[in-house]
């Protein structure tokens, strides 16, 4: 039973891209497309969520994701409350459920949740009272659906329909919630081929069952790719004996201009940020003409606006998003 979808197909929460029907994925992207028009205007606000309260509940530090969620909520005229729960204070003293009950008592309409535990967002979604929506802003290694949707949105904008595309995801697949959500979102949207490229120590067991092709050789994996999605490598991976060094990782799995030559001549390079320059990406690639990394950030706002408006209002397309009311 899906927690995030109601029986009538309405999106109640956004917890994962796994199992989302293609129509819903497309609808989110289409709605984001309509919002991105607003963002180009001088007055960037729509009154869609006026009077609604959204709580950014972050159990893990994050600047980028939290900021874009905050901006998205503000652009929709919602009231936003940021709660940063330092890891140290989430001791066994107050349980997650207790905290949830307390926040619910403040009459909020949605929680945007980031938590270090896989399944935390789903757990919260199962326990919020009816009418409160939960948007997953990253849970452990499990999912980061808005990141994946903004990536899909960026690809669609840059490259058009996903069906003919070969998309390679490179790096620390094992620990990456972004990669898991990307895989489900891209395949759900009908992407031609999704590849993952990593050394074996950074590949989760049975990842091919998710529908991807697995490459342990970077050059082979990049061959003919239309999109290269790099993942961030956490520095602590050396300690767990997953990798010998950053330099060895970069030498085998870093994206350089030379390696990029193996991809399709019009390929684009993406990264969820923040980039470890010289570890995942050669700075010349990160700043080069194929890089769409900054556009991903911009698109993140529109996509998060789309998700918020859909889970909080059930609005289906641009004509219902209140865009007509916005000054032109």
């Amino acid at each position: 039973m899906s927690v995030q979808l109601e029986p009538n197909g309405r999106l109640r929460h956004l917890l994962t891209t796994e199992g989302l029907p293609r129509e819903m994925l497309t609808r989110i992207l289409d709605t984001a497309e309509s919002f991105s028009g607003v963002l180009g205007k001088s007055v960037k606000k729509v009154p869609l969520l006026r009077g609604r309260t959204i709580i950014n509940l972050f159990f893990e530090p994050s600047t980028r994701t939290r900021t874009t969620f905050e901006l998205a909520a503000q652009r929709l005229s919602a009231d936003v409350l940021n709660i940063d729960v330092a890891t140290s204070s989430t001791s066994k003293g107050e349980s997650l459920l207790d905290m949830l009950r307390n926040l619910e008592a403040m009459q909020c309409d949605a929680f945007v949740v980031r938590h270090a535990d896989s399944g935390a967002a789903e757990f919260i979604a199962r326990h919020v009272r009816p009418g409160v929506a939960v948007i997953n802003a990253g849970d452990g290694r499990h999912a980061h659906p808005t990141q994946a949707l903004l990536d899909a949105f960026t690809i669609r904008r840059e490259k058009g329909p996903l069906e003919p595309l070969t998309i390679a995801i490179v790096g620390d697949i094992l620990h990456s919630r972004v990669a898991r959500s990307q895989i489900h979102a891209l395949l759900g949207l009908g992407a031609g081929q999704v590849r993952v490229i990593a050394p074996r120590t950074l590949l989760p067991r049975d990842i091919q069952r998710l529908g991807v092709r697995v490459y342990e050789d970077m050059d082979a994996g990049l061959e003919g790719a239309d999109v290269v999605m790099m993942l961030r490598l956490q520095r602590e991976r050396m300690r767990g004996a997953l990798l010998p060094s950053e330099s060895e990782f970069f030498a085998r799995f870093g994206l350089t201009e030379k390696r990029l030559e193996r991809t399709h001549p019009d390929s684009i390079v993406m990264h969820p940020g923040p980039v470890n320059r010289g570890v995942e990406l050669d700075p010349r690639v990160a700043d080069g003409p194929r890089s769409v990394i900054l556009r991903q950030v911009t698109n993140g706002i529109a996509v998060r606006m789309a998700v918020m408006s859909i889970v909080l209002g059930g609005y289906s397309d641009a004509t219902e998003t209140g865009l007509e009311e916005s000054p032109s």
Partner: peptide
Amino acid sequence: EGEVATRLGLPGQP
């Protein structure tokens, strides 16, 4: 450690 662990993003035990 297997498909379920991979999908759920939970650390697996081989």
